[in-house]
Amino acid sequence: MPYNRVDVAMRELISAFSGLEAADLVDRLARAAAAVANTSYAGFVRVDPQREEARPMYVLVPPGDPLRVRSWLAESGVLKELAYAVEPVRLAYDPGVGEPGFLATPVPALSCDHVYVWVAGRGFCDGDEHLLSRYAIAAGRALEAASGLEAAVRLLRGVRAFRPA
């Protein structure tokens, strides 16, 4: 079989663009959000296009979930609040009544979904909100770039599949 530059070039591009796993990226972004906010809890919430329902798309909690953030997310009404919110949402820290402290900010620039990055586990101030908002911009760009790479791989596979022999 003769050396085929197009096949080699397509294979190399597909390999390079496929190296990023979306689930791994979301995990890394959540871990970085937790680090930025100096807490152990972070994640992402996706809101449906009609802004009627919000669902966790990723939840990072420490082993044993000492503040019970997973159950708090499901039971507290914060997901409903995020479904309607257009601004950051900050809730007070009061472990005596089961409030873990919560801060969520919209992730801008995602083309089709409303997504929030959130952190929890302590009291948050205006400075934390500003920092998380700036982080959300970077996270949005990273998620869009990953989506763009996935689309590029699909297109490259099509080019390779339909290229004349």
Rank of each mutant, 00 (worst) to 15 (best):
D128N: 04
Y116I: 05
H130I: 11
V47F: 02
A22N: 03
F17L: 10
A138R: 07
E99R: 14
V97N: 02
L82E: 01
A9V: 11
M57C: 07
E129K: 03
E12M: 09
A83I: 07
D113F: 15
E150V: 09
G77P: 02
V8R: 15
V119A: 13
L25E: 10
A165M: 11
F102A: 01
V78L: 02
Q50T: 12
S40E: 15
Y3I: 06
A152H: 12
G123D: 09
M1H: 10
G19F: 13
P100V: 04
A146Q: 12
V36K: 05
L73R: 01
P62G: 12
E87Q: 12
Y135D: 03
L60N: 13
R55G: 08
G101H: 12
P56A: 15
V8Y: 05
D27L: 10
L103W: 13
P66W: 00
D126Y: 15
A9I: 11
W72F: 10
A146P: 06
G43F: 03
A30M: 03
A54D: 09
G140V: 00
K80R: 15
V26H: 05
H130L: 13
P49I: 07
N4R: 12
V47Q: 02
R55A: 08
V36H: 05
A92N: 11
L29V: 01
A85T: 03
S111I: 11
V6C: 10
T39N: 05
F124V: 02
A92H: 14
R68N: 08
